[in-house]
Structures are given as structure tokens and as C-alpha cells.
Computed example of a mutant assay.
Amino acid sequence: LPLQMLWLLVLTLPCLGGSVPVTSDPGPGTELVGIMGGHDAADGKWPWQVGLWFWNQTSSQWILGCGGSLIHRQWVLTAAHCIPGRHPVTRDFKVQLGQLRPSYSDSVQVARIIRHPKYSLENGVFGGADVALLKLEAPVQPSNLVGLISLPPASSAFPPGTRCWVTGWGLIGFQESLLPKNLQEVEVPLVADEICRQHYGNRIKDDMLCAGRRGRDSCYGDSGGPLVCKWRGTWVQVGVVSWGRRCGLRNFPGVYARVTSFLPWIHRHIHSSP
């Protein structure tokens, strides 16, 4: 599978120094939309979903480029490839909480950005470790619209076929005006690692997992958002939207960073800071 055939689920951010390869033409019949095969999410159903806004130097405007999840009152989990450039500046990032429609008006400023140390800017998502933590300027007040997603126990295992959910705004274009667009949700089955490797080859690392089926998938712009499954009656986040070949193709499910691979790193950061 040649690199140029893999279509990353991220907006290229050239003005921010991003260097993520995205094929410019996804091919006929593929719409550049967000969550594929999904529908509008209800208010308060996914209270941990956040939107990650970037300041676009070129157009001098805020752009909603990625999703993320609230895993602690002051910490957001997202994808490392959502944070472009060698030296990202915190003032260029804001986080939207508790809203179904894109809006940065009462968003929270990011105070600290921690990309996973094993994430490589050169290899991008294909090197693995596609996770990042964002510390917010102040702890957020939980409400019926803003809440935390639990992290899975290290021992938890979810069998292939487990039906999980992925959410996101999946914007369609970098310079396009943000049309009011409701958060989308779609149910996706987990795919066995060996099945996923049959199609993607050795690009699937141990710290990745696959989910989705034909017509049901995360897509362009959903990067960094949460893949959640029920664990003993509680929602837990098992994946972070990372990459995929186009969207919703048979045999090419969405690829996610596997949250259990990063638990020690996440806990170290969110519990060690005052």
C-alpha cells in the first residue's frame, strides 16, 4: 500500500508548520466529510468530546482542526499529529468544551502541550505513538454537558466485533468557513489486529488498533477524537482517531492509537503536575 494512497484523517496545517502527507484528491465518490455513516449526536451524550482550535497565521482566524477528549478536569487527550511543527506555541491552541456545534467563543486556552516522546515528526502517524496531552489553563467545572471519559484498565481486552462509538466534527476543508455543524456519532465494530494487518501490512504497530466497516468510519478532520466502548457498564476510551486509507472503505478500517499502550505515560503526566 503506497504512502500516497493513505489518506490521513487530518487537515494539513502548512501555515502552522505541519508536514502531514495528505493526498489532494481522495478519488471519485469519496466525500471529504467527517464521521461517515453517522448521525447527529444528542446534547450531553458525549460530554468528554472537545474541539481543538488552531490559530491560522495566514488567514488570521481560528480553525477547528481536530477533536480530543477530556480525561481529567485539566487535561485533554488528542493525537500527536494534531500538534504540528517542532515548537508548537500554546497560545495558538484553544479547546472547545460541552458544545455540539463548532464555537471557539468561550473556549479554554491551552497552557501546556506534551506530544508523546516516541512520536516522530518525520514518520508522522506511521511511526506510532500518535498521542498528545494538552493541559488547560484552569480545571473545568463538570456539568451535564461537560464530563470526563474514563481510561480503560490496563488489563482490559475488547474482542473483535465489539461495538464502540466514535465522534467528531470532521471538517471538510482547511480554508472553508465553518458552517454550523452538529457533532456526529457512529457505531463501529473493533477489527482484529491480524485482519487489519492483512490489509494495511506492517504499518499497523502494536500501539494501534482498528475499528470500522464499509460505510461506517471516522474520517478527515476527526483526528484526535475518542473511540469509546462500554466496559462493565461504563464508557471507556480505547482509541484516539489517527489515520486510515480514505474513509469507510471495505477492508480498510480506521486506525486508532491504542489507549492502553499509553496508560503509564498518561497517568504520569496528569497525576504528577500540581
Rank of each mutant, 00 (worst) to 15 (best):
V95A: 05
S103I: 06
F93M: 13
Y104Q: 02
S155V: 11
A129E: 01
P153E: 09
N144V: 12
L133Y: 02
G127M: 05
G127W: 02
H87D: 13
R86E: 15
S150V: 01
E137Y: 06
P152Y: 04
S107Y: 06
I114K: 12
Q96I: 01
S120I: 11
N144Y: 01
G98P: 06
A138P: 09
D106S: 13
R115Q: 14
E137N: 13
N123S: 10
A138H: 10
R86P: 15
F126S: 03
S120V: 03
I114M: 09
R101L: 00
D92Q: 14
S105N: 07
P117T: 07
H87G: 04
L148Y: 09
T90K: 11
V146H: 07
H116I: 08
L145C: 04
P88E: 06
A111F: 01
A111E: 15
L134C: 10
H116K: 11
R101V: 12
S150D: 14
F93I: 15
P102M: 06
Q96K: 08
P152S: 08
D130N: 12
V146T: 14
V89I: 15
P117A: 06
K94P: 00
G128E: 00
D106E: 14
Q99K: 15
Q109S: 15
G127E: 00
P117D: 06
S150L: 12
L133P: 04
L121A: 09
L151R: 08
V95K: 03
D130E: 02
L136T: 09
V146R: 01
F126Y: 00
R91D: 14
P152K: 04
Q141E: 14
G98N: 08
N144G: 01
L133Q: 10
S107Q: 05
F93H: 12
V125T: 00
S103A: 12
P153R: 06
A154N: 07
R112L: 15
Q99D: 04
K135Q: 15
S105A: 12
T90A: 15
P152M: 09
R115G: 09
R115F: 10
P117I: 08
I83S: 01
P102C: 03
G128L: 00
R115D: 10
P153N: 06
L100V: 11
N123D: 10
A154Y: 03
V110S: 09
G124L: 02
H87K: 14
A132Y: 03
S150C: 13
S143I: 08
N144R: 11
P117M: 04
K118Q: 14
Q99H: 11
L97E: 02
K135H: 03
P102N: 13
L134P: 05
V140P: 00
G128M: 00
V125W: 00
V89F: 07
V131E: 01
N123A: 11
D106H: 13
S155E: 15
E122F: 04
G98E: 09
S107E: 09
V89Y: 06
V89Q: 14
F126G: 00
G85A: 05
R115K: 15
K94R: 15
A129K: 02
K135L: 12
K118W: 06
E122G: 04
Q109K: 14
G85L: 03
L134I: 10
S120E: 04
